[in-house]
Nucleic acid binder design. Structure first.
Lengths: 211, 211
DNA sequence: TAGCATACTGACCAGTCAGTCATTAGGAGT
DNA sequence: ACTCCTAATGACTGACTGGTCAGTATGCTA
């Protein structure tokens, strides 16, 4: 009875293990998931996991870092490429974020990370720096452009960078958790668009004086 | 060596255990927290916990139910009592919700529940019915009143009941997780107020025609 | 094709914890 | 003071899992 082919592919293992870990942690939660589950999912034995990651914690940290960084780099590229009105750019960036957050594994990762942060200071620090702050900076840049062009009033500086991520992340969570119960839910895109329209309308420069 | 007074108080135990469990689960997370920790915190032995709750899961369910229901009953009372403009009532309710969500144990419970829902269908069903839906209904009633009085345009029906809870819950999470890193964060109240102002402004009936 | 570095394996260890149950003790009633 | 019901205890069990390591297989190199 030959073992189902014991291949050697050291270059691919870390990525395979991270993919498997994201799936297993996402399904079972960090604590409930066992390293053996992750190994099995990656088609590898338990010991192999410890060849590439120092501990279960270390593996988790790697999952968060490898899967989040990509998202943000993508978003920042848009800022540089776009020249139009800040409102349009904002809508574009929000849509991109929404799409990213609608991948079930991403929204689960966010959920996992939130739950884990109180227990894992390094994950928390990473999330703060590379998710929260980086996001705020991205949105902040767009707002500054909008203010300079006379599109937004100055309160947008406070509102946009904090409200938008909350809306997107929490809407994503609600959707992922209750999809099957929320029968007459309108498309996520519609909710986000209408909310963003209302917000932008309320933050227009003219509104400041109209009141 | 006498045991530190082995008192008998069957009437108070469940409540004491729920309080202890909320604290311990909140600090360590559901899986990492042991029943023995909870028992110790309540000044009781492990076996006693099983006198009142069938299992660890059951205890967790009880914590969620007992601590959340109270919040919502409080909120609904406001709706009945208030007669003024829908905008003012909305502001009032939002402030109350914000205060409730700023109690560290409440925001932790929300975090715990979110993390646990994929693994605990009963918690998920409870949360859907008694948190999400009930909240939407409450906010929905206010919106209807506002539309009837000519304060909001009809898109408010879609926007308010979904956007407000997301804003409040996620802002609360961010605050609780990153408080010590977010040095120049403005007061939570200011963020919420400005966002709500912008939203309501963008949802005013007149805006519908002004565009 | 023989030799060798090393990717990979899986049995094993040590620790943890949910849940049980035989025993102990508080205190109400008499 | 005695009885009795039952709240409370905590040692114990059985199952599980993170992490280790001695040994095995693979495939590159000469």
């Amino acid at each position: 009875m030959a073992t189902a082919s014991r291949t050697r592919r050291p270059a691919h293992r870390p990525e395979e293990l991270i993919t498997a870990a994201l799936a297993v942690f996402g399904e079972r939660g960090f604590h409930a998931a066992s390293i053996e589950d992750v190994a099995a999912r990656a088609g590898v034995s338990k010991g192999t996991v410890y060849l590439y990651f120092a501990s279960k914690d270390d593996l988790f940290r790697a999952v968060v870092e490898r899967r989040i960084v990509v998202l943000l780099e993508e978003g920042e590229a848009l800022l540089a490429a776009h020249e139009d009105s800040a409102s349009d750019l904002l809508r574009l960036v929000v849509h991109r974020m929404m799409e990213a957050l609608h991948r079930e594994d991403m929204i689960r990762l966010a959920r996992l990370a939130h739950a884990a942060m109180p227990q894992f200071p390094e994950v928390r620090d990473f999330w703060w720096e590379h998710v929260v702050l980086r996001n705020r900076r991205l949105l902040g840049s767009i707002v500054e452009r909008g203010i300079a062009q006379g599109e937004f009033n100055p309160t947008a500086r406070l509102v946009i960078p904090r409200a938008i991520p909350s809306l997107l992340l929490h809407q994503g969570q609600t959707r992922s958790l209750f999809q099957d119960l929320d029968h007459d839910a309108p498309p996520a895109r519609e909710i986000i668009d209408l909310t963003l329209d209302a917000l932008l309308d309320g933050l227009r420069l003219s509104r400041d004086y109209a009141r």
